[in-house]
Simulated assay, not measured.
Amino acid sequence: MAIIDWMREWLLEGGGRDPIAIVISAFALFFAGISSFVTIRNKAREDRRTVRTLFNSVAERIIDIQAKNDEAWVELQKSGDQLTYNLRLKANNSQLGTFARRMGDLLEELGREVSATDHSLLATAFTASRDPAAERHWTKAVSLAKTDAEKIAYIEGYAAFLYQVGRIESGRAQYDEALRLGAASGDYKESVAGRIWHLRAVQEYNAGLIEEMEASFARAEEAYCRIGNAPIRNIGLQSVAQQRDSLRKASGSSQPPITATPGV
């Protein structure tokens, strides 16, 4: 509109001797501006595609390293070689920290294109490397989650981070929030509750709170016992029993097995 107004004023005031030439020049200038805008926009899009490609590449490296941590854990269960496990974990988590920082830089460039999954992956890497930046990405992942199931998963990760940094009560509050959301899961609510209490038990153990660990495992058992589907119920109860026995052995606890009555 500014160009058109300028053209009208120029013509009415006799500012040019060749109105046709003026009009042609004005439109040439106008379309040159559009062309420049399109070029800049396309360049920006290309740059963003490049950043996204780099972001995805770094994300793949983080996933690979996390898989190595999982493999190391499986080997530990077989061999019991805690020293080797700790060394592998330390080396892997050092790499995670490096890649997480790189991924964080790329994430800032992507801005609004970043999803909850992107934030959760970055938060997981920062958590493993004990970087405080994990909290910002956990909370962002939770806020961007599209479903309650997705939100519960991110809250569980956030709670684990809070336990890791010694904010036990805040971590418990997050698990309580996950339980509240899980209560609306219909037929799956007991399975969800069992998993949440199970995860909380592990974090209580990591914090050195053995009595609280036992209490959380008991709540997990109670939830699993309320599941009507026998195969799913048995899988849940078996996972609790195995994990609890393993952690009791590691902590030197000699407490008797905790039982739960079905239907409680």
Rank of each mutant, 00 (worst) to 15 (best):
M1F: 11
I4D: 08
I4K: 14
E9F: 08
W10H: 12
L11F: 07
G16I: 11
P19Y: 08
A21S: 13
V23G: 01
L29E: 02
L29R: 04
F31P: 01
I34F: 15
S36L: 14
V38W: 13
R41C: 03
N42D: 05
A44G: 06
R45Q: 12
R48W: 02
F55H: 14
D64L: 12
Q66H: 10
E71I: 10
A72I: 03
Q77M: 13
K78N: 09
T84R: 15
N86F: 12
N86P: 00
L87K: 15
S94F: 12
G97I: 03
T98Y: 13
T98W: 03
R101V: 10
M103I: 05
M103H: 07
G104D: 02
L106G: 00
E108L: 03
L110A: 02
R112I: 07
V114F: 11
V114M: 06
A116R: 00
T117H: 08
S120M: 08
T124Y: 03
A125F: 08
T127I: 07
D131K: 11
A134P: 11
H137R: 14
S143P: 06
K146S: 13
I152R: 07
Y154H: 06
G157F: 13
G157K: 12
G157A: 13
G157W: 05
A160I: 14
A160M: 14
E169A: 14
A173Q: 09
E177F: 02
A178Q: 04
L181C: 05
A183S: 15
A184C: 05
G194L: 02
R195S: 05
R195N: 10
W197H: 11
H198A: 01
H198F: 12
A201P: 05
A201F: 09
V202D: 02
E204F: 13
G208M: 01
A215C: 06
A218N: 01
A220C: 07
E221L: 14
E221H: 01
E222D: 13
A223I: 01
N229K: 15
N229G: 08
A230E: 07
I235F: 10
G236M: 10
G236C: 12
L237I: 12
S239R: 15
Q242W: 10
Q243R: 15
Q243C: 09
A250D: 06
S253G: 10
S253I: 11
S253H: 08
P256T: 00
T261P: 01
P262F: 08
